[in-house]
Amino acid sequence: TPAEQLLSKCPWKEYKSDSGKPYYYNSQTKESRWAKPKELEDLEGYQNTIV
């Protein structure tokens, strides 16, 4: 779907730490963070409005 294509192009991906806590990693900037990036939230919100 178009929304899945947008998400696949987003540099932010969700991973799980050893303790199972989700964290987010940007493959372009090599940045990681615990809080979900706004860019990823926006894309997921867009995906939910299409489905």
Score class of each variant (00 low, 15 high):
W34Y: 11
K36F: 03
E44Y: 05
P22S: 10
T49F: 04
A35Y: 04
E14C: 12
P22I: 12
E31C: 04
K16D: 00
K16L: 09
E14D: 00
E44N: 07
S19W: 03
A35S: 13
S17I: 03
P37T: 02
Y24S: 01
L40K: 03
E39I: 02
K38V: 08
S8G: 06
Y46P: 14
L6T: 15
Y15V: 14
E39D: 11
S8T: 11
Q5L: 12
Q28G: 08
T1M: 04
P37D: 04
W12S: 07
Y46F: 07
N48E: 12
Y23C: 05
W34S: 15
N48G: 09
Y46K: 14
R33I: 05
G45S: 13
N48S: 08
Y15T: 06
K30A: 08
P37R: 01
E4W: 05
K9C: 03
P22D: 04
W34L: 09
W34K: 14
E14F: 05
N48H: 07
E14K: 04
Q28K: 06
S19Q: 13
Y23A: 04
E31I: 02
A35K: 14
K21S: 05
W34T: 14
D42S: 07
I50Y: 13
S32W: 09
L43Q: 11
N26Q: 03
Y24F: 08
L7Q: 01
S17F: 03
P2Y: 09
P37S: 00
R33W: 05
L7K: 02
N26A: 03
K16I: 08
Y25S: 04
K21T: 08
K9P: 14
K13D: 06
I50D: 11
L7V: 08
Y25D: 00
K36L: 04
Y25T: 04
K21Y: 02
E14S: 04
E4F: 02
E41T: 07
V51A: 14
Q5W: 05
L43D: 12
W12D: 13
S32V: 12
E41H: 05
K13S: 11
S8N: 09
L40H: 03
K38L: 05
S32T: 14
T49Q: 12
A3E: 14
P22G: 01
T49P: 07
N26M: 00
S27A: 06
L6W: 07
K13Y: 00
E39W: 01
P37E: 00
E14N: 02
Y25I: 03
S32A: 06
Y25H: 11
W34P: 08
P2K: 15
K36S: 03
L6G: 15
A3W: 08
K9F: 07
E44W: 04
E44C: 06
S17P: 04
